[in-house]
């Protein structure tokens, strides 16, 4: 049987339109062989989780440059649990302070990357996480 590709939802929550990071990462993940769905802009947490569940994704990647990370990530994690989808890996990229990253990881966000990160780091991390041994 052909191996199922890792399915990733790249999402832009909130009203912010800075989508360069989300699009570059989405394209890099697609080029790396993952199956990528990009939500487009202006998504509410409810919309993002509904799409994730409907599309049966393995990973949600949130791009946040609007300073709302301490509101959006906890809300997404909570909604995923409510939908019985707590197994979905939640990761994110954007402008985060080191302290916020520590707190978000303690809440259950699997990994976070700042604005200077390389896309290769993100690709490698996902490959390691879903490596079939």
């Amino acid at each position: 049987m052909a191996e199922r590709k890792v399915r990733i939802l790249v999402a832009k929550p909130g009203l912010d339109g800075h989508d360069r990071g989300a699009k570059v990462v989405a394209r890099a993940l697609r080029d790396a062989g993952f199956e990528v769905i990009y939500t487009g802009l202006h998504q509410t947490p409810d919309q993002i989780v509904a799409t994730a569940v409907q599309e049966d994704v393995d990973v949600i990647g949130l791009s946040i440059l609007s300073g709302t990370q301490m509101i959006v990530f906890p809300r997404i994690l909570e909604l995923l649990r409510q939908h019985g989808a707590g197994h979905i890996t939640v990761i994110g990229g954007g402008t985060f302070l080191p302290k916020e990253m520590r707190e978000l990881k303690a809440m259950g966000v699997a990994e976070l990357w700042g604005v200077d990160s390389s896309i290769q780091e993100i690709v490698d991390w996902i490959r390691r996480r879903f490596a079939t041994s």
Binding site: G14, L15, D16, S66, G67, T68, I71
Partner: peptide
């Protein structure tokens, strides 16, 4: 409701 969390932030 769509403004929640973003008022006066950016």
């Amino acid at each position: 409701p769509r403004a929640a969390g973003e008022v006066g932030r950016e």
